[in-house]
């Protein structure tokens, strides 16, 4: 399987702290890949490097563009999004005064009504708007959230907030979805439900995911490959059952 994302020997230092110290990994097309590691191991830093929040001190980040892999490190976050990488945040960053529907409709690129002149001419964008709204409705139905369409984010439960951030990313066809702890703070059955949706999207629509998750018991059931980070370095990788039985991983999680 071809790689969608290739991280090559990436390092990111903050003063003396080596947040990432030569990490290489690959996410294949239609992969559902897990990224785990103890607190402070560099998982979120890696997401920040891939999505343009940090420029790596060393190494390259490459993204598939038809038959080539092109570098995306050093681009701004909005440019990385346009290349086809969507992310969510550990602590959800939704638009709190907007409704659920409005949150979803912010995402799509190339909306005609976002131009200053066309925004004044309703006829020029209302057709596209309806189309996008139907897409939003379809996604909300799939995640059982249609009844909250007109609720404000501030009225939602944590589980729905988490879910909404994931759905918001799905409003645009992306090459790679980066989910940062989608199941954090969510009860067990909702967390499983969320991962079931994610796997369904992968299976049915061929989407590609890289997921950070602390709740290994859930993650391991769904992903097909796992990378383990520890102190900014890759500690282990492989199929879930291989990784959980790797003594190095067990030691990093439980040991001193």
């Amino acid at each position: 399987m071809r790689a969608v994302l290739e991280v090559r020997d990436v390092a990111k230092y903050f003063g003396g702290v080596k947040a990432l110290d030569g990490v290489s990994l690959e996410v294949p097309e239609t992969g559902l890949v897990g990224l785990i590691g103890p607190n402070g191991s560099g998982k979120t830093t890696l997401f920040n490097v891939v999505t343009g929040f940090y420029v790596p001190d060393k190494g390259e980040v490459l993204l598939r563009e038809s038959d080539d892999l092109v570098r995306i490190d050093g681009l701004n976050p909005n440019e990385v999004f346009k290349k086809g990488v969507v992310r969510t945040f550990q602590i959800p960053r939704l638009f709190n005064s907007l409704t659920v529907l409005e949150n979803l409709l912010v995402t799509p690129l190339g909306q005609r009504g976002e131009s200053l002149v066309r925004a004044l001419l309703r006829g020029s964008w209302s057709g596209q708007e309806r189309e996008l709204a139907r897409k939003a409705v379809e996604l909300l139905k799939m995640f059982d959230m249609l009844h909250y369409a007109n609720s404000k984010v501030s009225e939602l439960s944590v589980a729905h907030i988490k879910m909404l951030e994931t759905i918001r990313g799905l409003m645009t066809p992306a090459k790679l979805y980066l989910l940062d702890e989608p199941a954090a703070g969510v009860d067990y059955s909702t967390a499983r439900k969320l991962f079931t949706y994610v796997r369904k999207l992968r299976d049915e629509r061929g989407l590609t995911f890289l997921v950070i998750e602390h709740r290994l018991e859930i993650l391991m059931e769904y992903v097909d490959y796992v990378y383990v980070l520890h102190n900014g370095k890759l500690l282990s990788e492989g199929k879930p059952q291989e990784v959980v039985s790797d003594p190095k991983v067990v030691e990093a999680y439980i040991g001193a």
């Binding site: 909005n78 945040f89 907007l98 690129l109 005609r112 009504g113 976002e114 925004a119």
Partner: peptide, 21 residues
């Protein structure tokens, strides 16, 4: 309009808006 929606989004969370292109 979609522009107004984007403006409110930027107001609510600039970082998230940036991440959405």
């Amino acid at each position: 309009s979609p522009l107004g929606r984007t403006l409110r989004a930027v107001r609510d969370d600039e970082v998230a808006a940036l991440c959405l292109g």
